[in-house]
Amino acid sequence: SAALRAAVALAADGGGHSPERVESLGGAWVAEEALAIGVYCALAEPSVERALLLSVNHSGDSDSTGSVCGNLLGALYGADVLPAAWLRPLEGRDTIERLATELA
């Protein structure tokens, strides 16, 4: 809970976004840091595209933080907010979307 509180506070302070600010939450090599970074990026950056880029552009475990941030933003907004150029090359997209619809 301390890591999440730090992420929410950092997102709310309005100090701008940078890899250094992301890394102030840790390197994401442990679960609570990865969750904090994903939450920070999703809260701090109103643009979905820029939030995702922020979540992976740091020197820590960026694939994990990108996954956390992407899952949070996907739950909030759905795939419609993602750039079409990012979605086109996805392998198995139709199957994944069909299964997700059936599960929901």
Rank of each mutant, 00 (worst) to 15 (best):
Gly92Asp: 07
Pro83Cys: 04
Tyr40Met: 06
Ser55Arg: 04
Ser62Asn: 11
Leu73Gly: 05
Pro19Asp: 09
Trp86Ile: 04
Thr95Gly: 15
Gly15Ala: 02
Ile37Cys: 08
Asp63Gln: 15
Leu103Arg: 12
Glu102Arg: 12
Ala104Trp: 05
Pro46Arg: 03
Ala34Ile: 01
Asp63His: 15
Leu54Arg: 03
Val22Leu: 06
Ser18Asp: 07
Ala28Thr: 03
Glu20Arg: 13
Ala79Glu: 09
Leu90Ser: 11
Ser62Tyr: 09
Ala44Gly: 07
Arg5Trp: 12
Gly92Met: 13
Leu52His: 00
Ile96Met: 15
Ala84Ile: 07
Arg21Met: 02
Leu52Arg: 00
Val56Cys: 06
Glu45Gly: 10
Gly66Arg: 03
Pro46Val: 06
Asp61Ala: 14
Glu32His: 13
Leu35Phe: 06
Glu91Leu: 13
Ala28Phe: 09
Leu10Thr: 05
Ala6Arg: 14
Ala104Gln: 08
Ala2Glu: 14
Cys69Ala: 15
Tyr77Trp: 14
Gly27Ala: 15
Arg93Gln: 07
Gly27Gln: 10
Glu49Asp: 09
Pro46Cys: 07
Ala75Met: 00
Ser18Ala: 13
Glu33Tyr: 15
Asp94Thr: 10
Val68Trp: 09
Ala6Lys: 09
Leu73Ile: 00
Leu52Lys: 00
Gly92Glu: 07
Glu45Cys: 08
Val81Asp: 06
Val39Arg: 01
Glu45Met: 10
Asp13Gln: 03
Ala100Met: 10
Arg88Gly: 10
Leu25Asn: 07
Asp94Leu: 14
Pro83Thr: 02
Ala9Asp: 11
Val68Ser: 08
Asp63Arg: 09
Tyr40Phe: 13
Pro46Asp: 09
Ala3Met: 14
Cys41Val: 04
Asp13Met: 00
Cys69Arg: 06
Leu76Asn: 03
Ala28Trp: 07
Ser55Lys: 05
Gly92Arg: 05
Trp86Arg: 04
Glu49Val: 07
Ala11Lys: 05
Glu33Phe: 12
Pro46Ala: 02
Val48Met: 03
Arg21Leu: 03
Val48Thr: 01
Leu52Phe: 01
Gly15Lys: 04
Ala75Pro: 01
Asp61His: 15
His17Asn: 14
Ala12Phe: 02
Ser1Ala: 15
Val68Lys: 08
Asp80Gly: 15
Val30Ala: 08
Gly16Ser: 05
Glu49Asn: 06
Glu20Lys: 13
Leu90Phe: 09
Leu43Gln: 01
Leu4Met: 11
Ala42Cys: 05
Ser1Leu: 12
Leu72Phe: 02
Ser67Met: 12
Ala79Pro: 13
Ala100Gln: 14
Ala36Tyr: 02
Glu32Cys: 12
Ala75Gln: 02
Thr65Leu: 04
Glu20Cys: 14
Asp63Tyr: 11
Ala75Gly: 03
Ala7Leu: 09
Glu49Arg: 03
Leu4Ala: 14
Arg98Trp: 12
Gly14Met: 06
Ala2Leu: 14
Gly16Gln: 07
Val8Lys: 12
Ser1Asn: 13
Thr65Val: 11
Val8Gln: 14
Arg5Met: 04
Ser59Gln: 10
Val22Tyr: 13
Ala44Asp: 01
Leu54Met: 12
Asp80Asn: 13
Ala11Ser: 08
Asp94Gly: 15
